[in-house]
Every structure is written in C-alpha cells, then in structure tokens.
Design a protein around this nucleic acid. Structure first.
Length: 492
RNA sequence: GGCGGCAUGGCCAAGUGGACUAAGGCAGCGGAUUGCAAAUCCGUUAUCCCGAGUUCGAAUCUCGGUGCCGCCUCCA
C-alpha cells in the first residue's frame, strides 16, 4: 500500500516519495503572533499534526518546521499598510517583542491543549534577519530583484513560472488590481523582499539598503531552506496562502537556487462560522480560548478531524455538541475495555489475540488494514475515525455478549485504539484522568461505598431511595449504571 | 472582472466510474435487555442540486443551468 498525497502544484493525488529515503522534511506556515489563536488555527495545525503523526507511524524520520512570524507581515499584502505586530503592540502599549512572547505562548498553550505535537523547530522571523538579508543580496546580484529608495522588490517578469502554483496569469492579475499600485514597483505584482523603515517604525535592522525590515514572504523561504534543504518534501499551509504567499516563496526560492523549491504542496481548507466566512471584518472570530470554555479541547480536535483537511469546515454549536456526544461514546467503550483489562492483568500477563473475528466479521488485523488504507489516501482521518466507531460497536458487542471474555482480544482492541486513536489521530488519551482536586483512590472508594449502599437498598427493593441517589449523583455529573453484573460509575 | 473549489438522508460528513442494494457521528422511530433509568446491541430513515450527454455501467466523467464558498484586500 502506498501513501498518496494531494499536491496543489499538480492538482492531483500523487504517490508520496520522499527525496531522501526514510526521511521527510516538512515546513508549515505558522501563525503571525499578534492575537490569540482561533478555530482556523486549530483546523490547520491539527490537520498537519495528524499528517506528521502518520508519517512517523509509517516509519519516516520527520523533521517538522513551523515558523513563528513576528515581523514583516503587513496589514495589507500589497506591501502597503502597517506591520501587524507593530500595530497591535502600539494598541496594547507594549514592546513588539513583548506582544510576540505573549501571543506565542498563547499559541503553544492552545496547541498543547489540542494535543498537537510541537514542531521540531519553531524558528522566528526576527531571529533570521541575517539570512534574509543574504538571500535578498543574492537575488539582487543575480538580477531577480531591484532596490528602490531603500526597499527591495522581486522582479516578477524574471521568473517565468510565476503562477504555476495558483494557476494565475500575470495579465489577469493586472486587470483586477483594486488597490493603489506602489509607484516604486516596476510591475504591480512585484513583491517586497525588504522594506525601508520609516524613522518611527519600531522594528528595523541595518541592511545594505539602509534601515528596514524583511518582507513577509521571505522568512518562509529562508527558514525552510535553512533547516530542511534547498529542495524539500512538503510545504503546507492554509489554502488562502496559495496566492500570493506561496507563489512568491516559489519565485524567490527557485530564482535564488535554480532548483525546485518544494516537491509536495499541501493546503488545508478554511473555516466558516455558522455558514459564514470567519473574518476579522465580520467580527465572528472564534478564539480557541472561547471555544474551550464550552467544549473540551479534545472535542474541538475531534470536530476538526470530522471534516477532511481539504474540505471547508463549518463551526457551529450544533456540530460541536454532536461531536462531543460521539466522542464520549467512543471514549466510554475504551474506558470499559481498559477497566476489564486491568482487572484481568492482576492475574498475570495477557497475550494479544488479533485473529478473533468480531461480530462485524472483521478481525483486528483487518481493522488495521482498512484504517491504514484510509490514511494512505491523502490522510483521510475522517474516514479513519469512522472506522474507529465501527470498532467501538464491535467492541461493545464483544464485551456485552455474555460468557467468558477473551482478554487477549481485549488487549488487542486496547492497543488498536491506542495506536490509531491515540498515536495517530490524537483523539484517544493514554489515560482518562481524574477530575482535579479529588484524589482518584478516594473518589473510587467513595463511589464504591455509595454503590454498595445502593445495592443493599436495591436488594430490599427500596427503589425510591436508590433512584433518588442515582438521580442526585447524575445532577452533579456522576452517572451510575446498573447492569446485571453490578453497578458502575463514570463522570458525565 | 479573472482564477479555483463545493453541492450526498432532519443535521454534520466520508465516498470522485462497477462488492454504492451510498461509511461514520448526531437526532428520530421500532425491538432486545432493565424493577425503572442509563449504557449496550439489533433493525429502521438517501439514489447523491437541476437538465442533457459519454459509458455495458456515474454520486463519481463531459456540457449547460442554479446555488454557495474561497483567492485576487484582512485571515490558518
């Protein structure tokens, strides 16, 4: 079975073949840290998290680089406008780098909550000014860029392939210009590699062209090539960055090196909120911190994965709460399995039995096959998640079938959930933690006491009181389930 | 105006020519189980926006509509 990846460059699914056998270099456009991360960040970075996790599962040694943009991203991509960081810093009355620290931590905090693994390198644009200046120099020397009054622009007419990623033609672009053309540019689509800084601009560095700061597109080229290679395997990002950002990255990188920049371009789709585009101007931004007040981060992750990474995702309360119920059901199955298993393992080691035919007719080995088949098809985590639900139903039927349970099968089920649900999709925790502030053992003892007491009441057929206890516990979020084998409890 | 994408059951969402008599989740309904609940299991709820065409065969390809969305300005 071969892994297939949809490549924006060719607009086709292609078999994934890394440049260097057994290794993958992947660069994903990171956030511009001038505000708290929002649900769009979750879609993007959870999506790529699963991609990276799966590549590792497949045995690749992956180096995952994701930048932090802390300078140069203007409020207007036509190279006018203000620097987003500087603007926001002025608003919050802090140093730009203070602002950057604050929101970078906020970003990592939320990503950690979403169970997104940290990139191997999180390079910051402001930490790579020297390298960026070097690249601009190289482009000027080779005739791809020109400097005007202390700003340097990339000369788009020198790069024949401009538009190969986005499918745009230069002629068409000129037509639709809705913004004032910067008179310094030779062609309206020429883009800034280096910007002259006005005296009052807070962030500026010395350069051969005077004081200034790097253009936004430059950092990604410089940092990806520094930590990966002049040609590397995967470059990812949001679909809205295909043009102009990634197109410009290609132009400057391939001009500088005379070789292909990226082999596979991967783009994830956008988020809408209640069917409407989420945008600053529309004021319908959902920050992750807000979402987490209502839904656990794992629910948000679950929700993100319920839509394929290349499809748009609509955020709504209805969708989130239906996901929450689904996730709880899945987790519940796994909790039951682990409980039974831990009891069984008190009596000695259990060896895995993968060959057992579950009631769907599938064995665990077959589950593994179809799961991998789904993931191999351009990381179809949505389909893969559906397979986990199939396994959940099979598991429940297996547990509830009565008679003696083969613990080897249970152990196989548990490890299947751990690897596919946990390691790869990141939606199944290693352990289901206890509520904070309450000692787990104490809580268990307390609940066992209540369960024992209720059993006595129920033996006396005192339904009224035993039901009252069950209902009251339910109200405070503790669910008692009376089964033929005795009562169990769980948190809602 | 230019370029690109999407349209699947009540809702969300996989599936891009033949095991689809269309996954999975949520919601609903019927049944099993239960003292009653809960949980769980079983069954049940769609011919894939409209029209024409290609094909032995189409949700899946082509053309023409209709609707929505994205990029070309902010934003992952």
């Amino acid at each position: 079975m071969a892994l297939k990846v949809y490549n924006t460059l060719t607009r086709k699914k292609e078999e994934f073949k890394p440049i260097e056998q057994g290794k993958v270099g992947i660069y994903v456009c990171g956030p511009t840290v001038y505000g708290h991360p929002h649900i769009g960040h979750a879609k993007s970075y959870v999506g790529f998290d699963v991609i990276v996790r799966y590549l590792r599962y497949k045995g690749y040694k992956v180096r995952y680089v994701q930048n932090i943009t802390d300078v140069g991203h203007l409020t207007d991509d036509a190279d006018q406008g203000e620097d987003k960081i500087a603007k926001r810093a002025a608003l919050e009355r802090v140093e730009p780098m203070e602002l950057v620290e604050k929101y970078m931590f906020s970003y990592f905090e939320d990503m950690d909550s979403l169970n997104v693994l940290r990139p191997d390198i999180s390079p910051r644009a402001s930490g790579h000014i020297t390298e960026q200046i070097e690249m601009v120099t190289k482009l000027i020397e080779s005739g791809y860029a020109y400097d005007v009054n202390g700003s340097v622009y990339f000369d788009i007419s020198k790069f024949r392939d401009y538009g190969k990623l986005s499918g745009k033609k230069l002629d068409d672009l000129e037509e639709g210009v809705r913004i004032d053309v910067n008179p310094e540019k030779r062609h309206p689509s020429d883009f800034a590699l280096w910007k002259r800084a006005e005296a009052e601009h807070i962030m500026q560095w010395n350069s051969p062209w005077g004081k200034g700061f790097p253009g936004w597109h430059l950092e990604c080229s410089v940092m990806s090539m520094k930590y990966l290679n002049a040609t590397f395997d995967i470059h990812g990002g949001g679909i809205e960055n295909v043009f102009p950002h990634h197109e410009c990255e290609i132009a400057q990188s391939e001009s500088a090196n005379g070789q292909q920049f990226v082999k596979y371009w991967m783009h994830n789709n956008m988020v809408t909120v209640d069917g409407q585009k989420m945008g600053k101007s529309l004021g319908n931004f959902v920050t992750l911190k807000d979402a987490f007040k209502k839904y656990s981060p794992l629910v948000v992750r679950f929700f993100v994965l319920s839509t394929h990474y290349r499809s748009p995702m609509d955020y709504s309360d209805e969708a989130l709460s239906s996901m929450e119920k689904g996730m709880n059901r899945l987790h519940n199955t796994i909790k039951n399995v682990r409980e039974m298993l831990s009891l069984a393992e008190l009596d000695g080691d259990v060896s895995v039995n993968e060959g057992f035919k579950l009631s769907s007719g599938r064995t665990l080995g077959e589950y593994k096959d179809i799961f991998i088949e789904a993931m191999d098809d351009d990381f179809n985590a949505t389909k893969a998640m559906g397979i986990l639900f199939d396994l959940s139903r099979d598991t429940n039927a297996f547990i509830g079938s009565g008679g003696k349970v083969d613990y080897g099968v249970l152990k196989g089920i548990d490890s299947t959930f751990r690897v596919f649900g946990g390691d790869i999709l990141g939606i199944v925790p290693d352990s289901f933690g206890e509520a904070e502030g309450v000692n787990g053992d104490q809580m268990d003892s307390l609940m066992n006491l209540i369960i024992d007491t209720r059993k006595k009441l129920r033996d006396l057929k005192n339904w009224e009181l035993s039901d009252e206890i069950r209902n009251k516990l339910d109200e405070i979020g503790l669910v008692i389930e009376d089964t033929s084998g005795g009562a169990t409890w769980r948190r809602k």
